[in-house]
């Protein structure tokens, strides 16, 4: 594995992850997609879900919600409105996110909204 992918995950509050990785799996609106080094330029919106960073045998999971993934020759940038590493997603944080997701599901007006909210609820329930 000669090539590595430059990956940045930023939320409005801070840069959550930045580094060289092997592969990132992103929950896109039209399906999850994996990004490997030298991916073609590509841009997609995100659905709430787990973003998986693979580096060697290491694997990190980060819950992301609302935002974009932007693949350029320079690397992958994910702009997420919310990004919480899976290991921090427990106790109060998890409860707060769950209730927020349930709220969104109640208020969803369009099929897209309710799909996104349902994904958020399901992902959170699975953790």
């Amino acid at each position: 594995m000669a090539d590595k992918l430059t990956f940045n995950l930023v939320s409005p509050e801070k840069e959550v992850y930045s580094g060289q990785v092997d592969q990132v799996i992103v929950p896109g609106t039209e399906g999850d997609f994996g990004v490997l080094p030298n991916h073609a330029p590509f841009m997609s919106t995100l659905l709430p879900g787990m973003l998986i960073i693979k580096n060697g045998s290491e694997e990190r999971r980060i819950f992301v919600q609302g935002g974009f993934a932007d693949v350029t020759p320079a690397g992958l940038t994910v702009l997420a409105e919310l990004a919480i590493p899976a290991e921090e997603l427990k106790g109060e944080v998890l409860a707060a996110q769950k209730s927020a997701a349930n709220d969104q599901l109640q208020r969803a007006e369009t099929p897209e909204d309710s799909l996104a909210a349902r994904r958020a609820v399901d992902t959170l329930a699975a953790t």
Binding site: A40, P41, M43, S44, T45, F68, P73
Partner: peptide, 25 residues
């Protein structure tokens, strides 16, 4: 705009959909 080295950007969903979400943000 980033240098794409001659490749073409792909959008998913299309540009207008993305802009609709992106601009309010």
């Amino acid at each position: 705009a980033p240098d794409l080295k001659g490749a073409i950007y792909e959008y998913e969903p299309d540009e207008e959909e993305i802009l609709k979400v992106l601009l309010p943000r």
